[in-house]
């Protein structure tokens, strides 16, 4: 323990990204689900969401969107699928993270599976949010290696910025997450593309409208960190 291989650094980074992807998209999904109640045209709601996330709109109705986007393990964009990818990365890190930390990923995965087909799946899915909160709390408490925590959180904030930009969060929110991202990244030994970082810093500092510049910002973000 305490020595991180290239493979593990990669797993740590992607564990951070996938857990955040599930966390943020699930919280967004609550709002989408709510909007679909009032809108007659549910398709308009979820199709815009798909467009924002650059995922294919393969859904045929509001209900089918809920079933497939949340629960379908074969849908590579589904919440369940992304949680499985988090699990894939976590399970190979037991020696670094501890069984206690990894158990929250297992619990979150199981919670999505058990919410499927229930009368009020959003109630059940609240558990997923809770487990992911607990996961990060547990990471701070149990993961002794600071480098590990920094790599995971670099991934977490990279994903959060990506999603916030796509989902048109307020610029202030994005700025806040960007500061956290840079702080964490600087504490790791991951390769950083300084040109891309400077470019993204400029976009954020000049408070450009992410609505129009978001693809540019995302391209910069993608190229900043290189794990392997």
């Amino acid at each position: 323990m305490g020595i991180i291989s290239i493979e593990k650094a990669n797993n740590l980074y992607w564990l951070g990204r996938y857990t955040e992807r599930v966390f943020t998209t699930l919280r967004k999904f609550y709002r989408i689900f709510d909007s679909m109640i009032d809108f007659d045209d549910a398709e308009m709601v979820y199709s815009e969401y798909c467009q924002r996330l650059s995922i294919p709109n393969i859904y045929t109705s509001g209900q089918q969107f809920v079933d497939c986007y949340i629960f379908d393990p074969k849908n590579p964009d589904s919440l369940y699928h992304n949680m499985e990818r988090a699990y894939d990365n976590a399970i190979v890190l037991r020696d670094e993270l501890s069984s206690n930390v990894v158990s929250y990923i297992q619990l979150a995965l199981d919670a999505i599976a058990s919410a499927k087909g229930t009368a009020a799946p959003l109630f059940q899915l609240q558990q997923v949010v809770d487990y992911l909160f607990a996961f990060w709390g547990c990471v701070d408490d149990y993961v002794e290696n600071e480098e590990c925590r920094n790599i995971m959180k670099t991934g977490k904030y990279a994903e959060r910025i990506d999603l916030y930009i796509r989902l048109q969060y307020h610029t202030k929110d994005i700025e806040k997450e960007f500061t956290k991202f840079v702080n964490r990244m600087k504490k790791t030994n991951m390769h950083c593309n300084l040109d891309k970082l400077a470019e993204l810093t400029e976009i954020i500092n000049t408070k450009k409208e992410f609505n129009t510049e978001y693809q540019e910002a995302l391209n910069c973000l993608q190229g900043i960190v290189e794990v392997v």
Partner: peptide
Amino acid sequence: HSYLAERSGCVLAMYND
């Protein structure tokens, strides 16, 4: 493999490590 690495404090490695 992973549990014994965690408990013993050994490094868990794969061939490419």
